[in-house]
Simulated scan of single mutants.
Amino acid sequence: MFKPSFTISPDVLSAISEITETKVIVERSRVLPLNELHLKRQALIRMVHTSTSIEGNKLAEYQVDRVLSGMSVAADDKSIMEVKNYQEAVKEVEKLAERKEKLTLDLILKIHAITMKGLLEKEKTGGFRPADIYIIDEMGGGKEKLRFKGPDAKDVPKLIKELLEWLKHAEKDNLHPVLKAGLFHSQFVHIHPFSDGNGRVTRLLTTYLLYSDDWDFRKVIVLEEFYNKNRQDYYNALAYNWETQYAPGADFTDWLEYFIAGFLVEARKARDVINSLGFNLKDSPKEQTYLDTDEIKILDMLSGKFKITSDEVVDTIKVAKRTAQLKLKNLVDKDLIEPKGRGPSTYYVVKE
């Protein structure tokens, strides 16, 4: 079974302590519903942009915003599809995490299928790689250097099953969610189980683990921004204490120090932006809006989809069509959303 070797330094302990304190501040902060919705929307845009950028996607952040909003951009079809797929994968991660579903082999393959739809051959989409995989660095002048060779393809299913079994033990042993997510991140990417899409799926599953453990920081934290800020640092951190070929027994200490330091940076950013929008800055009756559970779910849907219809509300909160329409009207009356279109084609977007 996978048994990661690592040492928790005083700096790591201190960082985890501050991250925990920051999480409490973020969760307890009173933020206006419309402000929180805008924060979640911006976080999703940044998450999709940075995670796909790490893998070479050329779309700028404003273009990603347009794509996620259903607007056209002057870009190649592949780049647009990568962004749309990632948005769908994030939505699926959020839905599964909300239901507290345990991470399984089938769930991993499902996330890969959503992420890589139309980007890989069908037989390689939603399935483990059929052959060995090599990560090559271009050195210039026609020269190449082997950075890493993944484990043999025949060993991938076994390694993933061992990693999933370790997750069960980590939960029973009450391993801190941030440590658990960090260790999973490194081991999964080193198994490199797919023909393509390994980095994206690794980051999606790391998000899934954190969300499942209620470490989502109200979905305004974007760890990918830290990785994308200096991609070479991210690659170097993943390579700490690993040879150029997969082998069990690597020490994860250096990677965890990088991962947790980055987590703290992004947690502080989430805290600061939440605090800047607290109720203590506003006190007009209009801004002190209170929402019921269903209205919160509808706004959560909008933070990921950017536009919704009454039929989608029916499917999500399991109410009659008339009830869904009334709830949408309540949100319109509260000046949080606005309708677009007319008749059967009506949909709703966040009020700017």
Rank of each mutant, 00 (worst) to 15 (best):
R271S: 06
E18A: 09
L256T: 02
F2M: 13
G249K: 09
R322P: 00
E162A: 13
Y62L: 10
F6N: 04
Y62E: 15
N228P: 00
L103T: 01
A181P: 02
V349T: 12
T253P: 07
N236T: 11
M1I: 07
K78Q: 09
G126N: 06
K351M: 11
K110E: 15
T316F: 11
V73T: 06
M116E: 14
K282G: 02
S17F: 06
L120Q: 12
A131T: 10
Q87R: 15
V31S: 01
V273Y: 02
V319T: 14
K307V: 01
P151S: 05
E144Q: 15
L238F: 08
G70E: 11
G127H: 12
P130G: 11
V178C: 07
G249W: 08
L256Y: 05
Y208E: 03
V73K: 09
P10H: 08
V12S: 07
K269W: 03
L37Q: 00
K305E: 13
D173C: 03
L32V: 03
K58W: 02
P151Q: 12
G262N: 08
I221P: 00
E225Q: 14
L109A: 06
D311A: 13
V64M: 10
E171F: 02
V350H: 07
R342Q: 06
L302C: 05
T309N: 03
V314A: 11
I260F: 06
I160H: 00
E171S: 12
G140C: 10
E165I: 04
Q63R: 05
E257S: 14
K168L: 07
G140I: 07
L107G: 00
V93N: 08
L209D: 06
G118H: 07
L39K: 05
G56N: 08
L96R: 13
E165D: 11
T50I: 05
K145F: 05
T316Y: 13
L103E: 04
M47N: 09
I16Y: 04
L44R: 05
V24P: 00
S195V: 10
R147S: 12
M71N: 07
I221H: 00
T206Q: 10
N330H: 15
A74G: 01
D254M: 13
P4D: 09
T253S: 15
K124E: 15
N241Q: 14
E338C: 02
T50V: 07
F6S: 08
R46M: 12
D214N: 15
E138P: 01
T50R: 13
S195M: 10
Q87T: 03
V265I: 14
Y348M: 11
Y211M: 12
L204T: 05
P339D: 11
R129C: 07
I135F: 11
R41K: 14
E295D: 04
G262F: 06
V265P: 01
I298D: 01
T7N: 14
A60R: 13
V156Q: 08
A15F: 03
E55D: 14
V83P: 04
V24M: 11
T22R: 09
M116W: 02
H38W: 08
P193G: 06
A131C: 03
A113N: 10
K351V: 01
I274P: 00
K305Q: 13
E171H: 07
L13E: 14
K40N: 10
D300C: 02
L238D: 08
L159T: 01
P4F: 08
V73A: 09
